[in-house]
């Protein structure tokens, strides 16, 4: 006679019989706590089963992920491009949240996506958008392709420069737009991957970014035709040699990262700033 086996889920006692006992003889748990142990033809603990099971799981998951990734790739790339356009528009003081169609607005404002070399010469007047700035930063300065976006806001010419640097925990990046004199700051945009919320991450906030576009106290990246960058100083400190903004209290490492990013990122374009149009 084939008897069924029931296991108590509370204490693990195994009962043999046609049905579960009313009470567990060991821990007095009611019959509902008993679970039938199903005898299977397959030994789930054998080596062969384990290896086959693992292989099947891996293959199934791999196909599933490949499928999801493949199906969503186009949509994701679109989002990445749109997001980049939004960032560039933000650096031109355009409020993205009030903008119904950022892609159309971008086409309207951005007139050229140039590629420069470190001598400030225009190598190519298209294709600047597709340059990967963090990749270019790993090359020697002479070989870098430097993108610059030539834009028009209310009839005035603006230049937008991308920057990329390192914060405390991960990369930070941003865009800075200059007036046609290539010195007066028109607007900025900063973002980050993983800076501390409430501290370093405050570089994305208007409170920090508005310092760059204070109409009463415009910031310049050069003095007497010489590139000085814009210093990010500890709140309360000043800087004699360059225009400066206050960093984030408690976010010193990130503020320093922004300072270096501005200096090195814009420094690559020094020759371009010195050129007459």
């Amino acid at each position: 006679m084939a008897t069924k086996e029931f296991k108590c889920k509370v204490c693990g006692y195994v009962h043999k019989g046609d049905k579960a006992p009313d009470n567990c003889p060991v821990c007095q748990a009611p019959a509902s706590e008993f679970e039938e142990i199903k005898k299977k033809g397959l030994d789930t603990n054998s080596n062969v089963y384990t290896i086959i099971y693992a292989s099947i799981v891996v293959v199934v998951v791999a196909f599933l992920l490949a499928f999801v990734s493949g199906a969503l790739k186009a949509k994701q790339d679109e989002n990445v491009i749109l997001d980049k356009k939004k960032q560039i528009l933000s650096s031109l003081n355009i409020n993205i949240k009030e903008c119904a169609d950022p892609a159309a607005k971008y086409a309207e404002c951005v007139k050229g996506e140039w590629i420069l070399n470190s001598n400030g010469d225009v190598v190519d007047s298209i294709g600047g958008f597709d340059i990967n700035v963090s990749e270019e930063n790993t090359k020697p300065l002479e070989e870098r392709k430097l993108p610059v976006y030539v834009c028009e806001i209310d009839g005035a010419k603006k230049y937008v420069f991308p920057m990329r640097g390192a914060g405390l925990w991960g990369p930070i990046w941003g865009y800075i737009s200059l007036d046609a004199d290539k010195s007066t700051v028109f607007g900025v945009y900063f973002s980050h991957e993983s800076e501390t919320p409430g501290l370093g991450a405050e570089i994305t906030q208007p409170k920090f970014q508005n310092q760059f576009r204070d109409p009463e106290n415009p910031k310049h990246i050069s003095r007497d035709g010489k590139f000085t960058s814009i210093a990010v100083v500890k709140p309360g400190n000043t800087c004699e040699d360059a225009d400066y903004v206050n960093g984030i209290s408690g976010g010193t490492m990130t503020s320093t990262g922004v300072n270096i990013m501005l200096k090195e990122g814009l420094g690559q374009y020094e020759q371009f700033f010195n050129k007459e149009d």
């Binding site: 299977k40 789930t44 603990n45 089963y49 099971y53 693992a54």
Partner: peptide, 12 residues
């Protein structure tokens, strides 16, 4: 749960 080999359950 009834098919997972107990030795690699955490990995699964």
């Amino acid at each position: 749960r009834n098919t997972i080999p107990s030795r690699i359950r955490i990995i699964v």
